[in-house]
Amino acid sequence: MEKVIEVKRLFAGFDGIEILSDVSFSASKGEVTAIIGGSGSGKTTILKHLLGLYDIQRGSVSVLGQDLSLLTEKEMNNLYLQMGVFYQDGALLNSLTVAENIALPLQQQSNLPDNLIEEIVRMKLGLVNLEEAYRLYPSQLSGGMLKRAALARAIAMDPPLLFCDEPGAGLDPVSLESLDHLIINLKNLLGMSIVIITHEVSSILRIANHIVYLDKGVVVFEGSTAEAIDSEITELNDFFSAILNNPYKTSRS
């Protein structure tokens, strides 16, 4: 199957401390790939490498078939047009309203007239159930609302490739479920390839096709969701059972 992401033997560190050791994995087109692992295991660090926000020190990262370390700034910007990103802390621009935040990529990257953009923004807010936040500033939103607004911005352009860093954290179960449905819809209807970092086992079981399990900067498992559930790997078992009290399998540790 066509790969949208291929990471090979990636190492990374800050101030001499190694954060990622020999990370390799891939994500296929049209699938939901979940990167899971404890906090501090290096998930966000991987994401920032995938986005070209960190220089690659060792190893290689290719996104949508392009090796990031070979791209010029202009080529990188063209690649960005095909990606939507949901950042862990939302990263909405505080100086703009929620609507202006979502309109920003549309204004910058399309020639659509303003009134159409406004309609698109309303629709995207509707998709995440946040119509009421249209004129609010990010500082006026609750944590869960911020997450949904950030997601609306990430999907503003219907990007072929969507990255989400813990979109479900802090959401109530109902919002979480509708978020999962949205992700499934985006995948099925628009053929989006989605890379999602998450802790929510229920979400993972609902939406993920492919799982990459990270432990202290090392990939200890990569495979399909079914394989992950059946895996003999202790850490992975613990992960599934710790949160869900795994009905599929009892923990061995």
């Binding site: 990263a91 621009l93 920003l104 990257q109």
Partner: peptide, 10 residues
């Protein structure tokens, strides 16, 4: 991460 977000929006 707002600056990162700007960059990845081109």
């Amino acid at each position: 991460s707002e600056l990162d977000a700007l960059k990845t929006m081109g």
